[in-house]
């Protein structure tokens, strides 16, 4: 984890309430896909945890949805302005476990943390299939970007306006080696049931205090005891999670 000041070099809306922000600064604390940052916003006491969509030596790309006053304030920030962030938080996806044909499943604003993972898997020669689930056509983002880096992309919409009608589990391919996912808990639960027998890792969301393991605000109970979503996760082996199904 590192604290630093990052400059906004791009900030654009992807849908009516989802934004993409590219920041430049020290990215050396980023060690794996699926990690997150904590952003300090003027006028707000707690930092905002936002998952990292992509990163390289000099930039970090975040995609976030406006869900409250903090993310609304974030959406007002302009290119050229800077943000105080804690970077390189949490335990992310282990790309080494993917097997030959990994499946990546993202639901809504759970899509972004899969992007850097897809990039790394494709660079490692894996045959990557991505399922992106949304409610309707005007909520879709990043399908083209995943295609451009070489992933096979399947889109699902609940209303059937684009792609497969239904949920992500309605588009599951017959064969895949491992599953990585991020999205709302009902989606993860359905995917867990549908992907039994396959290995996989799921990224969870929880209200956080600190984001670096100190306050125990985001603890969950797992089969291996209590774990902090911010520090031991947000990505967990799906088999250690308690599903109650």
């Amino acid at each position: 984890m590192k604290q630093g000041i990052y400059t906004i070099i791009e900030h654009t809306p992807l849908t009516k309430d989802v934004y993409r922000m590219v920041l430049s600064g020290d990215t050396s604390a980023m060690t794996m896909p699926g990690q997150f940052v904590e952003i300090s916003l003027p006028g707000f006491f707690l930092r905002r945890p936002i998952s990292v969509c992509d990163y390289d030596e000099k930039t970090i790309t975040l995609i976030y949805k406006v869900v409250g006053q903090g993310t609304d304030a974030l959406s007002q920030m302009k290119e050229g302005e800077s943000l105080d962030m804690l970077v390189g938080l949490g335990h992310g996806f282990d790309a080494g476990k993917s097997g030959d044909a990994p499946l990546l499943v993202g639901g809504g604003v759970g899509v972004p943390p899969l992007f850097n993972l897809a990039r790394k898997l494709i660079a490692a020669g894996r045959d990557v299939t991505v399922i992106l689930g949304f409610n309707k056509a005007d909520e879709i983002f990043y399908a083209r970007e995943f295609e451009e880096i070489g992933a096979r992309v399947l889109v699902t919409t609940v209303d059937g306006s684009v792609g497969v009608k239904g949920f992500v589990t309605d588009a599951l391919p017959e064969h895949f080696s491992y599953v990585y996912s991020c999205g709302p808990m009902p989606m993860l639960r359905a995917l867990y049931k549908a992907a039994q027998g396959k290995g996989g890792e799921f990224s969870l969301e929880e209200r956080m205090g600190c984001g670096f393991g100190a306050c125990m605000g985001c603890s969950i109970m797992t089969k291996e005891g209590s774990r902090r979503v911010c520090k031991d996760g947000p990505v967990f082996d799906k088999e250690v999670l308690e599903w109650q199904i």
Binding site: F45, G70, E206, R207, G209, C215, G217, C218, S219
Partner: peptide, 8 residues
């Protein structure tokens, strides 16, 4: 959880 809320 949730165990955390923000205030002014």
């Amino acid at each position: 959880t949730p165990r955390i809320a923000e205030t002014p």
